[in-house]
Design a protein around this nucleic acid. Structure first.
Length: 211
DNA sequence: GCCAACGTTGGC
DNA sequence: GCCAACGTTGGC
């Protein structure tokens, strides 16, 4: 139960434009083929490398955020098997990383957002690749999305297992202070809750987090 | 397809 | 609490 991860789940804000305005009928509103990003695969874009074909045995790196008060690294350590499904992500870019980017065996930094200070506190491993986030179709659930079709899932999640707590948490200010990390997706798209981490970024941060 | 309005994230 | 960034929605 307890809603994990980003409580943030975007509220599918029901058409906040009540009937007050124009009746939907007023608009042509054709079949609206809408090339929605719902299923679109991440073609190019700035993070294409995260989806590119992998070399034999290549391992990739990622970073996920969670508010400590919602689901902390300690909560993960206390979970059965020290693993959990990373549910609740309701952003297409993040969804694409979960659904198409992450592979079994990839390593993931666990970041506490909205914390003082915000910091990377642990490392996890992807133990199950992208699969539908069932909380999206659970009416009444905090992460429920009325527009998500159970037959064609919009939202995905992966399972993560804790690997280790970093001997020393790596804070956001410390990350910002390192020139080698200036290009981090974490800094460039601050609001994304799932981002790729390059091998070199991983190495730098891992070293910073060593005792 | 463009763009303004609006809502959310999350750092400060 | 404020605000920058930015994703989504919907009018046109």
């Amino acid at each position: 139960m307890a809603a994990k991860k980003k409580a943030a789940a975007k509220k599918r804000a029901v058409p906040k434009k009540p009937a007050a305005t124009k009746p939907a009928a007023a608009r042509p509103k054709v079949a609206s083929p809408k090339a929605s990003p719902k299923t679109a695969a991440p073609a190019g874009g700035p993070w294409a490398a995260a989806f590119a074909p992998r070399a034999e045995g290549e391992r990739r790196y990622w970073l996920v955020k969670s508010e400590r008060s919602v689901f902390s690294f300690d909560d993960l350590l206390a979970s059965a098997g020290q693993r959990t499904c990373w549910d609740g992500v309701r952003n297409y870019a993040a969804r694409n990383f979960l659904r198409d980017g992450m592979k079994r065996g990839d390593l993931v930094f666990f970041y506490h957002s909205m914390d003082e200070p915000q910091s990377i506190v642990g490392v996890c491993e992807v133990v199950r690749e992208g699969y539908p986030d069932h909380t999206a179709t659970m009416r009444g659930h905090a992460h429920f999305d009325a527009e998500s079709d159970p037959g064609a899932p919009t939202w995905f999640m992966v399972d993560l297992r804790a690997v280790e707590r970093l001997p020393r948490a790596v804070t956001l200010p410390a990350i910002k202070a390192r020139a080698e990390l200036a290009g981090m997706a974490l800094l460039r798209i601050g609001r994304l809750s799932v981002t790729p981490v390059t091998p070199s970024e991983w190495a730098v941060i891992r070293a910073m987090g060593a005792s």
